[in-house]
Nucleic acid binder design. Sequence first.
DNA 1: TTGTAAGCGTTATCAT
DNA 2: ATGATAACGCTTACAA
Lengths: 338, 338
Amino acid sequence: MSPTLKEVARLAGVSRSTVSRVINNHPHVRPQTRERVWQAIRKSGYQPHAVARSLVTNRTEIIGMVIPEAVTTLFTDPFFPILLRGATNACNAHRYQLMLSLFAPSADQQERYQNLLGNGYLDGVIVASASLDDSLISNLLHDRVLFVSVGRHPNRQVHFVDVDNLGGARMAVEHLIHLGHRRIATITGRPDMAAGQDRLEGYRQAMQAHGIPVEERLVVEGDFTENSGMVGMQRLLSASPSAVFVASDMMAIGALKALRQAGWQVPQDIALVSFDDIPIASAIEPALTTVRQPIERMGSIAVEVLLSLVESSPEEEAPVHRIVLPTELVVRASCGSP
Amino acid sequence: MSPTLKEVARLAGVSRSTVSRVINNHPHVRPQTRERVWQAIRKSGYQPHAVARSLVTNRTEIIGMVIPEAVTTLFTDPFFPILLRGATNACNAHRYQLMLSLFAPSADQQERYQNLLGNGYLDGVIVASASLDDSLISNLLHDRVLFVSVGRHPNRQVHFVDVDNLGGARMAVEHLIHLGHRRIATITGRPDMAAGQDRLEGYRQAMQAHGIPVEERLVVEGDFTENSGMVGMQRLLSASPSAVFVASDMMAIGALKALRQAGWQVPQDIALVSFDDIPIASAIEPALTTVRQPIERMGSIAVEVLLSLVESSPEEEAPVHRIVLPTELVVRASCGSP
DNA sequence: TTGTAAGCGTTATCAT
DNA sequence: ATGATAACGCTTACAA
């Protein structure tokens, strides 16, 4: 077995407390002793046992990333990988570890929830893209678990990091309007998610701001997946819009497929603008005009906020963080800009 | 604070040991007592404290997924997300947790390695797509950490799960040969990774088996990224191959971009076959003919193997697992099959 | 400045 | 079948 404090103490000819002090950089240790202890540590290859330490400090330096499993299909969407990268980077910088949990709103959800959150292994949790009516958030609030949501949440006690979905969508649609389009359709995201709602609202606001009435058959519902984009576009064809705001790049890829099958050219016959700017958006033909959101930053900021909560004193009622990052329109070929 | 064993014991009028026995389903507890204890547990909302338990059992029921950071760019490639999904699903099924670590071969690598593996938080580790000359694997072996590699490793002590990269590549190239091609080029994967080497070897074997000499300027090196596919294709143009075996779908997407820019039509002017069958492969134009590998299964099998190691008795020298899953050619438009 | 000892919440051994 | 009690490896008063 690996050496313990006791071993090191023996080697250095001091007590365990002194070794502990050295390791935790406490003051009040004579430099000489400190040095002897370090030598013993190096010599023995001692490593503090994190589990034992956690038992007394009540901190594990592990945070969880919870992804509602309903959303698991979206793993084909680079959103999560990129978010994850941002989060792990921030964790690394703070020497925290990241535990990943896919969560199903299923039979054993309750048990897994208890198991994960109640067992004392996590100092806090990042909740990614929960459905707005997911009970997860209210459970976390009720159980006083420290957490940060990626994506806004209406409850005023919830700390969150989000991007300006509404503004981004409005910007995208206004771009189409400025290009002269008026029959502008939209394929929405999941209506139970904040991003889905906000992007739709951005569409409506842009239309309204320019006095263009929204024809309801120009609004079809998607769920962020490629397939829903294809199906949505097929349903839209008969309404013959001249442009479409698609609420995600993956759905835009599906929409392109439907358009090709129908023999429509993009952007000649119909203009497309979407949302996300995932890496593939610039690689396909035609390259997508899309709203770029800083996914990786959202991941790292979520972690930073969470750690600030974790490391603040227990009940010093910190202000609620509600952070909204800006988005940016990236103009490429699919919208037919000159 | 949440209730402890002591509380429950008091409530049920028994000792802590008895409560512990009930929780861990030990026999030799009178049904009557057992029932009383359960009532006390439910009443108090008691949850075992995993950290305390781990301290004595020496098991955390957490495993790590280590991804060498060099490979982090590949996060834009759906390979890792899908692998991750397979792994987390298997973990869920066994009530284990998954800890994610991106690992840089950088200045602090040594420290982070120590920190992660030495601190007693992990029962075992999955190593994903390590470079063959990464010191990580030898470190793990040296430190007797239980681990399973995703992707083969030459060391005979290493447990691994891989797919039949060689056979898949050979199949792909033979398909091109059967279509009548002889000037077949290849854009390789990273030569320091098993998948890169094996797919190249499969290409060579197929060519040789059909008596077609390999012209070395028809072999250009890539690194699995879309950009390297684009650059590789550009370099290949002057050699005017009639077909290309591209070692990954993401690179094929880059290659398509280069071909479009050069005004070549796929598959009319040049045929393309690639590897992976990531979701986007079927969504783009032209749909990619590609070798499908069971990524998600690889992830879950890796976990299953690891857990079997974790749960086997300490030194019962288990046989080394070297699992190779089959691949399958998915014929679509890009190869020009009739 | 350093050591002693209590405790963190479990499991496991040994009595009873 | 149940209860004391000693670990597990660490941190942290408190004493010296």
